[in-house]
Nucleic acid binder design. Structure first.
Length: 296
DNA sequence: CCTTGAACCTGGGCGC
DNA sequence: TGCGCCCAGGTTCAAG
């Protein structure tokens, strides 16, 4: 499920149950997800208190007392849910009736919280997600993080930075924005949405947004603003739509979100005054949705 | 270096 | 009820 806004929403949703709680035991129900778990994963994290939940790009970070940090990536289909209360039986509830999907519950974090026992359960049908554990001080140099670009949140991402990254690049904008080395956390949906907002074609070469002096053209400044706005809006929407449900379902935000171009092939463009129709093309093996009429 | 395509997995939707 | 095909929010390799 996750691009940056969804992972951020998951982080916020899990925080009440996890932060300050004791991670009594990490139960691995299979030896691997996308990659094998480290051999000592469970031994290393079990019995530790959880200090805080963080996020970098699409990675969820769980900081433990003692200086280790759990790294979790949700891949394409990963989600977390919280189940409170004691008992060995996992009670089904309205949102998650017991059923077939349970076979994809791969990791169970057994917690001792301020309100009693609880479980945080990681479910991932496709198993493209993965978890690792490392020392907090080694995080920045970890292979997952070493080459990551700037976050599209906060004020670090600016058009001068993107101009430096894009100078001389013939690479299509779609691919350049999807590249985590440029911007950390954008995925297929929000790249399409940001390009639509900016009126820029996904096929346009990234270098054409930079002037001869290596400075960002107006179009790149606008794109930078739109990227930040798209992400901020999505986080805001996820946070509000999930408030009631995050306890049991981290995936809800996505599907309540309505997109302007993503997955709208053949439908009318929503740009005011535009009479175009949303088209779908494939770039580097991924679907791109855009309006050929107003995105140049 | 660049760009593309395949691979990793399961499940849902659609046409027949 | 079934079958086969295509598609899916990500990342990483190998190959051209």
């Amino acid at each position: 499920m996750p691009e940056l806004p969804e992972v951020e929403t998951v982080r916020r949703g899990l925080t009440p149950a996890m932060e300050g709680s004791l991670l009594v035991r990490a139960e691995l129900r299979r030896p691997d997800l996308r990659f094998p778990f480290p051999a000592d994963f469970s031994a290393l994290v079990s019995g530790r208190r959880i200090l805080s939940l963080g996020r970098r790009a699409k990675y969820l970070l769980i900081d433990l007392e003692g200086g280790d940090v759990i790294i979790a990536h949700l891949g394409m289909s990963g989600s977390f849910r919280v189940e409170e209360g004691a008992g060995s039986e996992i009670p089904g509830d309205f949102h998650h009736p017991r059923g077939k999907d349970e076979k994809h519950d791969h990791v169970i974090f057994h917690l001792d919280t301020a309100n009693g026992p609880a479980r945080v359960i990681y479910n991932d049908p496709r198993r493209f997600g993965f978890m690792d554990v490392t020392r907090r001080e080694a995080l920045a140099s970890h292979a997952f993080f070493r080459e990551l670009g700037e976050e599209p949140t906060g004020n670090v991402l600016d058009s001068d930075y993107l101009a430096r990254r894009f100078t001389g690049k013939a690479q299509p904008l779609k691919s350049a924005l999807l590249d985590q080395k440029n911007i950390a956390g954008l995925g297929n949906i929000y790249v399409c949405e940001a390009l639509w907002r900016s009126g820029l074609s996904p096929m346009r070469a990234a270098g054409t947004l930079v002037d001869a002096k290596g400075k960002p053209k107006t179009s790149l400044k606008r794109l930078t603003d739109d990227i930040r706005a798209v992400i901020a809006d999505a986080i805001a929407a996820g946070g509000s739509s999930l408030r009631d449900h995050i306890q049991t379902d981290g995936t809800l935000g996505y599907f309540q979100h309505s997109f302007s171009v993503y997955d709208r092939e053949g439908e009318p463009c929503r740009t005011p005054g535009c009479s175009g129709t949303v088209a779908r093309v494939v770039q580097a093996g991924r679907s791109t949705f855009y309006c050929p009429e107003c995105q140049k």
